[in-house]
Simulated assay, not measured.
Amino acid sequence: MIGERRKFNRLGEDGRRAALIAAAIALISEGGPATATVRAIAERAGVTPGLIRHYFTTKEALMRAAYAQVMDAMTQASVDVLASTPNRPQARLAVFVAASLRPPVVDSRAMGLWAGFLHQMREDSEMRAVHEASYLHYRDLLQGLIAALPRVADAGQLRADAIACNAVIDGLWLEGSALPDAFRPGELVRIGLRSVSAILGLDLMAEMPERGI
């Protein structure tokens, strides 16, 4: 423990804050929110409980930061694939949807963390605000990809399409993360692409001929 604390103390301000968030996420992943007490988080991070208050005014504030990091990481994993995707609107949308329905986004640990935060979301308006921000960030990215497609759609239609496509992706993500052995390889991706294609009136599967789906 002494060695861990010395290592921790060499971190900068950002590193210390990140280490506390990582400790909270690890504890929630292992045993749910009840295991992520201030004492347990401090012990996992190798600091005294009092130091947590230096970075987060309350434990709830730390939980919000942890939730935001989990959600942002999943969204970023879907965004990252766009860097190596041809600059064709349908191809970019197809790989974005596919990435959202594959590991590391589809993951039982991530789903467990998401579920663990739900109770706090019901009781904490600030946690709901964090959830809303993460939801809208992903949906706005999705809507931007949909808006780039070569079709005619006004702002209202684009919004409705993004909400519908996001709902399909969310539902498949939840089931795939909760029951990873219930689906054949690539099945979630195929269903997701076909469902989004049906909503938008196009064929995203044609953009994925060599991706093992």
Rank of each mutant, 00 (worst) to 15 (best):
Leu200Ala: 10
Leu174Ile: 10
Leu179Asp: 13
Gly171Lys: 03
Arg190Asn: 08
Pro180Ser: 09
Ala178Gly: 04
Leu172Cys: 04
Leu193Met: 09
Arg194Glu: 14
Gly192Glu: 01
Arg184Gln: 15
Gly186Glu: 05
Ala178Val: 13
Trp173Phe: 15
Arg184Ala: 15
Gly192Thr: 02
Ser197Tyr: 06
Met208Lys: 11
Phe183Lys: 01
Arg184Phe: 10
Leu204Trp: 03
Pro185Ser: 11
Ile199Thr: 02
Leu204Gly: 00
Gly176Trp: 03
Ala182Asn: 09
Leu179Tyr: 14
Arg190Ala: 07
Leu174Thr: 07
Val189Met: 03
Asp203Ala: 08
Gly171Ser: 07
Ala206Met: 12
Leu202Lys: 09
Ala206Arg: 12
Trp173His: 07
Leu179Ala: 15
Met205Ile: 14
Leu188Asp: 00
Glu175Arg: 13
Glu207Ile: 05
Leu202Cys: 13
Ile199His: 05
Leu179Thr: 11
Leu193His: 12
Gly171Leu: 07
Leu202Met: 14
Glu207Met: 15
Leu179Cys: 14
Glu207Pro: 03
Pro185Thr: 02
Arg194Val: 08
Ile199Lys: 06
Gly171Ala: 10
Leu172Thr: 04
Trp173Pro: 00
Leu200Gln: 01
Ala206Lys: 13
Pro180Thr: 02
Glu175Ile: 15
Glu207Arg: 10
Val189Ser: 01
Ser195Gly: 15
Trp173Met: 02
Leu193Val: 08
Leu172Lys: 01
Glu207Cys: 15
Glu187Cys: 05
Met208Val: 11
Arg190His: 09
Leu174His: 08
Phe183Thr: 08
Arg184Trp: 12
Met205Gln: 12
Trp173Ser: 00
Ala206Phe: 07
Gly192Val: 03
Glu207Asp: 14
Asp181Asn: 13
Glu187Lys: 05
Leu202Arg: 12
Leu193Phe: 11
Arg184Tyr: 12
Ile199Trp: 08
Gly192Lys: 00
Asp181Glu: 13
Ile191Glu: 04
Pro180Glu: 04
